[in-house]
């Protein structure tokens, strides 16, 4: 009877993940085409375009980190402040005479440690991740200012700024290589390892995950560690790119990073989505910003366009899902906030 059309509709909905990626790819292609043809100085013989990525791949690195947390149905608002903080810590260590790479490593490890603390506070006291990371964002901001003082160090060794920042291998910027490695690693981590599977499962249904033997708390904690770690790496990359640090240099990255995660198709309530979508969305969003900036539009207006893309994309996605009979937002909201089970 109605089996036929119902199945076709179901088929479309099932592939919504691929469908979303395809749309992103089309969007990216259209965007690149438009800017290359229509905006002077964007294409730059190809290398020019590739070099644009230096201005936004730090967002992508941070987005991957937040992505882990969002897969678990949590959120991390502290990433931006974390990146600033890590940059300052690294620079200060370097000023004290620590080898720059060692300083970077220590700073990133401190970031991971702070991520661990976030995770432990959130899971042990059963607090909202939004709340804890909001508080932490304030605290990290103060710490960064206090450590860095008015005039944080700058002028890092050339080897550092070129490898982690503005250098390139042939025509390919070093940052793209770093991003590719990190991106590949994170896609595998989420979709091909036991940890990633646990993360996705608990993002889908925290209670069922507990009943299936997933160590929910520990998996969430590890997501926060990764988030801290990646925010730290982003902080190092920013420092290298600009050859300086500032106590608020990373703060402005947080919102674009979350935007990239959501635009990448990851469900803000956890579980659904693909990490590769986040990588894609980074380029979509980043080239959009850069293209507009080169076109002569202000940063704030470019952000506005980015925000618009986010809202429209999500409205379309949710609208299509509703029509397709997928679980409604209200359903998922209720599931998200349903009592966490037995003590």
């Amino acid at each position: 009877m109605a089996e036929g059309p119902a199945r076709i509709r179901r088929g479309l909905r099932l592939n919504s993940e691929q469908w979303w990626m395809t749309s992103l790819a089309v969007l990216l292609a259209a965007e690149l085409l438009y800017f290359s043809l229509g905006v002077q100085g964007f294409w730059g013989g190809g290398t020019g375009m590739l070099n644009q990525t230096e201005y936004f791949l730090d967002i992508g690195i941070m987005a991957i980190g937040v992505g882990f947390v969002i897969f678990a149905g949590d959120i991390d608002l502290s990433c931006g402040a974390m990146a600033s903080f890590v940059g300052i810590v690294m620079a200060e260590l370097w000023k004290q005479g620590v080898e720059i790479w060692v300083a970077a490593l220590i700073a990133v490890l401190i970031a991971a440690l702070i991520g661990l603390i976030h995770g432990l506070i959130i899971t042990l006291f059963r607090l909202e991740s939004l709340l804890v990371t909001l508080a932490s964002q304030f605290i990290l901001g103060s710490l960064a200012t206090a450590i860095g003082g008015g005039y944080p160090p700058y002028g890092f060794p050339h080897a550092f700024t070129s490898i982690a920042g503005t250098g390139s291998v042939g025509p390919i910027p070093a940052q793209i290589i770093i991003f590719a490695v990190i991106g590949w690693f994170s896609v595998l981590l989420v979709h091909r390892t036991a940890f990633g599977r646990s993360l996705v499962l608990l993002g889908h249904n925290r209670d069922a995950a507990r009943y299936t033997g997933v160590n929910v708390s520990w998996t969430r904690v590890r997501a926060f560690v990764l988030s801290g770690l990646f925010a730290g790496i982003a902080g190092i990359v920013i420092a290298a790119t600009y050859n300086s640090v500032r106590d608020d240099l990373g703060d402005s990255l947080l919102l674009p990073a979350i935007t990239a995660v959501v635009l990448g198709g990851v469900d803000i309530f956890g579980g659904r989505g693909h990490m590769a979508g986040v990588l894609f969305a980074t380029f979509v969003l980043g080239f959009l910003y850069q293209g507009l900036l080169i076109e002569g539009i202000s940063q704030l207006t470019a952000n506005m366009v980015g925000g618009g893309v986010l809202v429209v994309a999500l409205a379309l996605k949710i609208g299509l899902e509703r029509r397709g009979g997928g679980l409604s937002f209200a359903h998922r909201l209720r599931a998200r906030f349903s009592p966490g089970g037995v003590p």
Partner: peptide
């Protein structure tokens, strides 16, 4: 529904 299946998986 709550503790068994992962509905969307």
């Amino acid at each position: 529904g709550r503790n068994g299946i992962f509905a969307d998986v």
